[in-house]
Simulated scan of single mutants.
Amino acid sequence: MAIEQGIWKLANGTGEPPQKMRPTGLADEGLLEEQIMQDVSILNRDWLLIGRQVRTAFDKLIDLLALDANGNVIIIELKRDKTPREVVAQAIDYASWAVTLADYQLIDIYRAFAERYDRPHATLEEAFEAKFGLALGDVTLNDSHQLIVVATRLDASSERIINYLNEHAQLSINAMFFAAFEDGGNRYLSRAWMIDPDEPSQPVSRKSKKEPWNGEFYASFGDDRPWELARRYGFIAGGGAAWYSKTLSMLSEGDRVWVNIPKTGYVGVGEVIGERCRADAYRFATEHGSKSLPELVSREDYFHLYRHTDDDEEDAEFLVPVRWLHTVSRKEAFSEVGLFGNQNTVCKPTTPKWPHTVERLKQVWSISAESTYKTYE
């Protein structure tokens, strides 16, 4: 169904007939892209632009990339000089790449976009909260995506393809038509949707993506455990049930482990120097000689250490000794959207987030693969 747009100037009760404005056409769709950059509400007031000319993994450029308030990705492709069928096929091709994007990749895309185009917010977290009044961490990024083809017109065959993909192929794709008009030296832009955008769109299913483990371990250090003590004497710990302590056995001497305090952030990285041991049995070298944790800390300061009985091995607190390569206090913990997190005391992550997390921590803490220094004061 071809869509024709028109604008009429009303006579305001003078008795004169409405006057149809003269269509001028869109000579340069690059100009339309510039207008969208200035005000995304030309497309949709509830979208946040996060990228322009975004390069895909197969070296193609997506015209515009946006997010909605739910964190869903919108791929916007201008027809330009492509045939109608080409632009539809190209948008679907881009979707095959966009569906694989992890949240940290979207964060990086926005960071580059903001820097290149001097956006008012430097990070996606800031831009998202300013736009929607929501914290970025409160939504699931890229849980689904939507394709938008922007054109002055589409042929009937392309319209049938778009309708079919929406109704039968579980793909959310729409077309937006623009027309330009002129009146007394003033220029106007009008738009029309091919499919009502308020109709529920088809969800796009996603499959989890795994990557080879990079050899770096993740550790969760409980928020109710004494991080400053662990930082000073060199250990990570878990206990209260076998589920929390048994994963410490995954660590062997020489392993590297990155430590996160849930809901706080990453606080250190260290090299394992011993095997898992009951926390009350391990002895630390101190300036006052060899000491156990019960000799170093009170029940009030380390409740988990004291709550088990001697014959209750499963509930006991266990630790793994480490030589810290870098640590920070709780107040200096590093946290941002896109970093890996897990409730296991120790694990071997295989998600795309994990290598990104390690690289970000190396950048923030200025450490390299060969770093062997300790930072505790």
Rank of each mutant, 00 (worst) to 15 (best):
P226F: 04
F178M: 07
L26T: 11
M250Y: 10
G184Q: 13
K374A: 14
Q90E: 14
F178I: 06
L319C: 06
V259L: 01
T247N: 09
I75E: 12
L48H: 12
L251R: 07
I195N: 13
E300I: 01
P120V: 05
G222I: 00
R85F: 04
G30A: 12
D155P: 02
I36Y: 03
N70E: 14
H304K: 11
E287I: 00
G274F: 04
T350W: 00
V328T: 15
A192K: 07
M194T: 03
T327Q: 11
D46M: 03
E332L: 08
S220P: 00
Q105M: 12
L65H: 02
A98H: 04
I367M: 11
W213T: 10
F221G: 09
V73I: 15
D118S: 10
W193I: 06
N163V: 00
Q19I: 11
R323D: 12
R231D: 11
I148T: 08
D255N: 13
A237I: 03
V87E: 03
D39I: 02
R278F: 01
R119D: 01
E253F: 00
Y164E: 11
G234Q: 02
A279Y: 00
S172H: 09
N214C: 14
G289N: 10
Q19N: 11
Q363Y: 06
D108R: 05
L78G: 11
L32H: 08
A122R: 12
K20M: 10
A192D: 13
V54K: 03
K246A: 14
D81V: 10
R187H: 15
I173N: 12
D311V: 11
P18L: 09
R206W: 06
W243V: 15
H145T: 07
L325E: 14
I236N: 09
N342E: 10
F340R: 05
A66Q: 05
S220I: 01
V364E: 13
K353N: 12
E359H: 08
W47I: 03
V40P: 01
T350P: 01
A180T: 07
I92Y: 04
G270R: 06
L106H: 02
P84M: 03
P226R: 05
T327A: 09
V337P: 04
I3P: 01
S245K: 11
V320W: 02
I173S: 13
T247Q: 10
P262N: 04
T123C: 02
A122Q: 13
E370V: 09
P17K: 10
Y110F: 01
I36V: 15
E253I: 02
Q343N: 09
F128Q: 08
F132D: 06
C347D: 02
V322D: 09
K210V: 14
L124T: 08
I42N: 04
Q38I: 03
P212H: 10
T14A: 08
S208Y: 01
R160T: 06
S329I: 11
H356S: 15
H356M: 08
A281K: 15
P355W: 07
G185S: 10
Q343K: 06
V99L: 14
D223W: 07
S298A: 05
S96V: 03
S290I: 05
E253W: 00
G30H: 10
V364F: 05
R256A: 03
P197C: 12
V149G: 06
G13D: 12
D183K: 02
D81A: 13
L305F: 08
C277Y: 04
L10P: 01
T247I: 01
H145L: 15
E377L: 11
I261Q: 03
P84N: 09
Y306W: 14
R52F: 01
